[in-house]
Write a protein that binds this DNA or RNA. Sequence first.
DNA 1: GTTATTTATTAAAGTACTTTAATTTTTTCC
DNA 2: GGAAAAAATTAAAGTACTTTAATAAATAAC
Lengths: 191, 191
Amino acid sequence: MKLLLQHISRHIQLDPTEEAYFLSLIQLKTIRKKEFLLKQGEICKTENFLLSGCMRTFKLNEQGEEQVVQFGIEDWWVGDLYSFLTQTPASYSIDALEDTVVAQITKENLDKLYEQVPKFDRFFRLILQNAFIAQQDRIHQNLSLTAEERYEEFVRRYPQLEQRVAQKHIASYLGITPVFLSMLRRKRVNG
Amino acid sequence: MKLLLQHISRHIQLDPTEEAYFLSLIQLKTIRKKEFLLKQGEICKTENFLLSGCMRTFKLNEQGEEQVVQFGIEDWWVGDLYSFLTQTPASYSIDALEDTVVAQITKENLDKLYEQVPKFDRFFRLILQNAFIAQQDRIHQNLSLTAEERYEEFVRRYPQLEQRVAQKHIASYLGITPVFLSMLRRKRVNG
DNA sequence: GTTATTTATTAAAGTACTTTAATTTTTTCC
DNA sequence: GGAAAAAATTAAAGTACTTTAATAAATAAC
């Protein structure tokens, strides 16, 4: 839980009362490997901050294939933001790739938090700014780089993930088939 | 300028003093068709709200081709957020596809605004939430749809843009060549 | 620890999309 | 309003990536 408070203190300063109030709105939850935090069609009841472990956010496309849109590790937020905000059925599923612990806040509690401690408007504005910038770069890369270049970028940017996550998930995240990713890796190793 | 105040009032309520203060921090600027609002390498000094016209945000890739990452029309914000926040050289260029009028706020003034009227933290949080959701959907679509399907989606979602913007820019936004887009369009018309 | 199951590799044939280049259409500009 | 420039169309050859299928390697399960 210290991890979450550290994460917040990087963006805003809380006094002890505010910190206590914030913590009173948070719940911990453990998700075992292969279990789901959220299933497509359910309502996303919480925003989730990863304290440990690794998760993936994905969507079934029309052919029933799983398309990974995001990974989450320690220090990252995961959730289906649209479903959370509108309390409508989720388009994304989220499951655990390792045993995972998350800190959760419900929409009701988050709304209270915004009213009681408006600094959190700023906090989430800052978080979203960073996420927006990262996503825009990713869109640019997806459109202008080859699969090979995207893979290089992925390895460079997330060396930990390359190790922790199955190749088929990385392939999906990059928008290519596992077969083709395997070819790229061989090419990389052999020269 | 009414457009901007309406846009804000959809998300937060300002009292007359706050509104006047906000307006005192805003400047209008006209950009003629083909002129630049921002050039890659310059520092992005303002966030920009489009009152009329149409702009494109793009980046030169390593082969020197222009990759369009976003269009902007009335009611949208444009800028290079990373360059704006860090006041470092921009990775993106922004130019006008039509004569355009924008309402601008500098980083200095926006920082003042956040301190004087903290509601704006909420305002931009809400704007960023929407942008984040839209981008996530776009990432998913870019990875899981064919070029033809992405084009269909684009036409469905932004019918106005399809009319207003040159095909080569739409092709770039979709991540395909103008030649291939032309083929898709013929196919669409002929059956 | 062995078996069953899932994941990664390899090869070969197929397809969506690109590249190049020539022609036509549309837009720009004095 | 006519010439020049830019954008869109068409066709043909080329390439990055997919699909299928068979085998090997790694992980899970009892």
